[in-house]
Simulated assay, not measured.
Amino acid sequence: MMAVDMLEDAGFEVAEAATADAALAILEIDPTIDVLFTDIEMPGSMSGLDLADHVAERWPHIRLVVTSGRSGFTNQEVPVVGRFVPKPYFADQVLHAFEKADAG
């Protein structure tokens, strides 16, 4: 919820999903979404990284930003169009990653 508040404070319209499956359902009905910010550790049938891979394949226009508290994770493990931001993060780090993420 802290990330939602941070993004809304930065002027983004945010659609929040508790699971990767719920995120996919939102993406199916809302073509205006242009950035996905997800944690790797997601409840449900897939991880946030699996979600990012699926989104990169299905909706290549969506920029991807992935976060995690796991040490040793890097940009190279995120789909090529995405960025990784380690936890704990600051708002400016996430916003910079949004800018640097390359939509297909």
Results as ranks from 00 to 15, higher is better:
residue 1 M to S: 15
residue 1 M to N: 13
residue 2 M to I: 11
residue 2 M to L: 14
residue 3 A to R: 03
residue 3 A to Q: 00
residue 6 M to P: 05
residue 6 M to W: 01
residue 7 L to V: 12
residue 7 L to Q: 09
residue 8 E to W: 03
residue 8 E to H: 06
residue 9 D to E: 06
residue 10 A to V: 15
residue 11 G to E: 13
residue 13 E to N: 08
residue 13 E to R: 07
residue 14 V to I: 10
residue 14 V to M: 08
residue 14 V to Y: 06
residue 15 A to H: 14
residue 16 E to C: 15
residue 19 T to V: 09
residue 20 A to K: 02
residue 20 A to H: 06
residue 22 A to F: 05
residue 23 A to S: 13
residue 23 A to L: 13
residue 25 A to T: 12
residue 25 A to Y: 12
residue 26 I to S: 10
residue 27 L to S: 11
residue 27 L to G: 09
residue 28 E to W: 07
residue 28 E to D: 07
residue 29 I to S: 08
residue 30 D to E: 13
residue 32 T to M: 08
residue 33 I to P: 03
residue 33 I to S: 04
residue 34 D to H: 14
residue 37 F to A: 06
residue 37 F to P: 03
residue 40 I to E: 05
residue 43 P to M: 10
residue 44 G to W: 02
residue 46 M to Q: 14
residue 46 M to R: 10
residue 46 M to G: 13
residue 46 M to I: 12
residue 47 S to P: 03
residue 47 S to I: 05
residue 48 G to A: 09
residue 50 D to G: 05
residue 50 D to Q: 06
residue 51 L to R: 01
residue 51 L to H: 04
residue 51 L to D: 00
residue 51 L to T: 02
residue 52 A to L: 09
residue 52 A to N: 08
residue 53 D to S: 15
residue 54 H to Q: 15
residue 55 V to G: 05
residue 55 V to N: 00
residue 56 A to V: 08
residue 56 A to K: 04
residue 57 E to M: 12
residue 58 R to W: 15
residue 59 W to T: 01
residue 60 P to R: 05
residue 62 I to D: 00
residue 62 I to P: 01
residue 63 R to W: 12
residue 63 R to H: 15
residue 64 L to R: 04
residue 64 L to A: 04
residue 65 V to M: 02
residue 65 V to Q: 01
residue 66 V to F: 01
residue 66 V to L: 01
residue 67 T to Y: 01
residue 68 S to L: 03
residue 69 G to W: 13
residue 69 G to D: 13
residue 70 R to Q: 14
residue 70 R to T: 11
residue 70 R to D: 14
residue 70 R to A: 14
residue 71 S to V: 09
residue 72 G to K: 00
residue 73 F to E: 07
residue 74 T to P: 12
residue 74 T to C: 14
residue 75 N to Y: 13
residue 77 E to V: 10
residue 78 V to M: 09
residue 78 V to Y: 04
residue 78 V to S: 06
residue 79 P to N: 11
residue 79 P to M: 10
residue 80 V to Y: 07
residue 80 V to C: 08
residue 81 V to Q: 09
residue 81 V to M: 14
residue 81 V to W: 07
residue 83 R to M: 10
residue 83 R to V: 07
residue 83 R to P: 05
residue 84 F to N: 03
residue 84 F to G: 00
residue 85 V to A: 03
residue 85 V to C: 00
residue 85 V to L: 06
residue 86 P to H: 00
residue 86 P to F: 04
residue 88 P to H: 08
residue 89 Y to S: 05
residue 90 F to P: 03
residue 91 A to H: 08
residue 91 A to E: 08
residue 91 A to W: 07
residue 92 D to L: 07
residue 92 D to R: 02
residue 93 Q to N: 09
residue 94 V to T: 03
residue 95 L to P: 00
residue 98 F to H: 01
residue 98 F to K: 04
residue 99 E to C: 11
residue 100 K to V: 11
residue 103 A to G: 12
residue 103 A to F: 07
residue 104 G to W: 11
residue 104 G to N: 13
